[in-house]
Design a protein around this nucleic acid. Sequence first.
DNA 1: TTCTCTACTGTGAACGCTCACAGAAGCACG
DNA 2: CGTGCTTCTGTGAGCGTTCACAGTAGAGAA
Lengths: 343, 343
Amino acid sequence: MTMSNTGGRRKPPTIHDVAREAGVSRGTVSRVLNGGHYVSPAAQEAVNAAIRRTGYVVNRHARSLITGRSDSVGFLLTEPQERFFEDPNFNVLLRGCTQALAAHDVPLLLMLAGTQDERRRITRYITAGHVDGVLLVSSHSGDPVAEELREAGVPLVACGKPIGLGSKVSYVAADDRDGARDMVTHLLSLGRRRIGMVTGPLDTPGGVERLAGYREVLAEAGVEADDRLVVSGDYSRASGETGAERLLDRAPDMDAVFVASDLMAQGVLTALRRAGRRVPEDVAVGGFDDSPAATAATPALTTIRQPWDRISSEMVRVLLAQIGGEDPAAVILPTELVRREST
Amino acid sequence: MTMSNTGGRRKPPTIHDVAREAGVSRGTVSRVLNGGHYVSPAAQEAVNAAIRRTGYVVNRHARSLITGRSDSVGFLLTEPQERFFEDPNFNVLLRGCTQALAAHDVPLLLMLAGTQDERRRITRYITAGHVDGVLLVSSHSGDPVAEELREAGVPLVACGKPIGLGSKVSYVAADDRDGARDMVTHLLSLGRRRIGMVTGPLDTPGGVERLAGYREVLAEAGVEADDRLVVSGDYSRASGETGAERLLDRAPDMDAVFVASDLMAQGVLTALRRAGRRVPEDVAVGGFDDSPAATAATPALTTIRQPWDRISSEMVRVLLAQIGGEDPAAVILPTELVRREST
DNA sequence: TTCTCTACTGTGAACGCTCACAGAAGCACG
DNA sequence: CGTGCTTCTGTGAGCGTTCACAGTAGAGAA
């Protein structure tokens, strides 16, 4: 009975084995592996053949040990995990980032900083250089983890404009203000003039920007501003429902409402139905996000699509560039009005 | 103007620095780091103090290079990514695994094998030893990636019983059959006798088991089997709707229906409402999963809760044990009947 | 005393790779 | 024929750790 390959894993071939197989030195193999500059076509070919024959895969640990890079990045979710994990957009973002990174052969490490303990561990892990950079998802302002990473000089790209952090951190965001402008312009074009709004949380840039876009367009159109037409919500379905009730109470003549998220818009629809208002005949409703909630709603929501697939690929692009030594950058991506049945 | 710490990252302290600081040798520091056997209390203390003072964090690359372990595991999603990414259970699972691993200081690498190209890359990455083991989420049978990993001897833990793979791969699953039994028993206890079923996909173990549990209980109760009472679905909402229509068509006297997923059950509710049947008065409806869809439905669904938090922690436990050299194991976890308004 | 055993500590050699450097070969130019 | 340049190749050192081994000190037994 001879040694078989059942069970334990074989010791993988090293750069040495490849070099011997190809009849060249380690240095030459290494050069081929890293771009192939200053290596003759003949050697290039021999090495590639040897790699294929031996099934060689570079040992990233050995490489990282000497280069100081880890060739991996972290995907860090700091604050309210439930909210994100229930948000379909988060899934799209996570998937998009993973795939965009995979195209560059860069693994993604998922990091959830829930408890204080996890926060500490993750901070140490990152600042110790075990990832080259971090994709940051954190809605709220003044994130201590992000702040610490920024100070340590870790390349950082946030999803959405971060509030507390300085200009040294890159971010990629949808153009909230412009999206809001598009929606309100659309409502105006339908002849609506008493347009209400249920805002998002006003301690987030997104919440602030969407409200700003709403106000701008109304002012530009010469529509009288009316504070009774604005109530604030927190992106939850329930807050949309109560928000709509308050709007109807304070401004019964409202003929349209711009809601800062689709989930809230669902709540608004519920409240309007209960109040006997027809959508869109009596009141037109515009959402924001183009989440699954938009199509699941009845009537299906007219909404603003955020380009989550592009957001994720841009985040990865900016992060890798920054790891490569480029300066931090801010990327604002255009949104798109998706017209359905609610307007 | 002296050197400042703005910009680039500082070179982190090494085990050497700690050794010097503590007045001991590298070996002693290493021993403290790895469990602290054969090291005097005094040295132990000195080293720990030095670690705290210097802010030392072990360089995992150097460690991995010599130990051959990477101290990280992959979370691998192979087949139909959309389905999982829209499934709230998947989120809970991913989060649970990440946190359970974090407690052991083991990073999780997210791997999505969508395209053929990604599949190849991931397989090579894993078999090259860049992760110590894999948490596998793959519903369908005969997964080629999983098969290859199994052959390479990579520790593997599947979520749900895998169909194609042999006994060498561990798995953790909810007790589908028992859950189905509980639900059908519950329906019988309500006096229902004409109990229909909308099954899951019958090429998955879960789909098969839930159907088996349904049949068993009816047989044991002496209720006449009727093929007209069973239709198959694919876990989607739409298939629940059409399934219910076919059931009503074939067996108008149906007084209860067991649906193999909450999402399908939502569709069933829609179809029943359209057909003018009251739930639960005319037809009682039981779901499976206890997903958010269950509480969002009207009436709220009686359903079977799968212990996703325990599933994830068990997957991690089994995987780490297997990496540590233990044999593959199968873990079946109990489900729980959650009674709401639909029965 | 001497020997053995245990508890602890230090040291050199690896792990697999990249990087800097030295050197070789070929070519052009004076 | 030397000199300089470019293109290519091999070599030794070293990245930060762990591991095996050798060695020391102290206690207890013969």
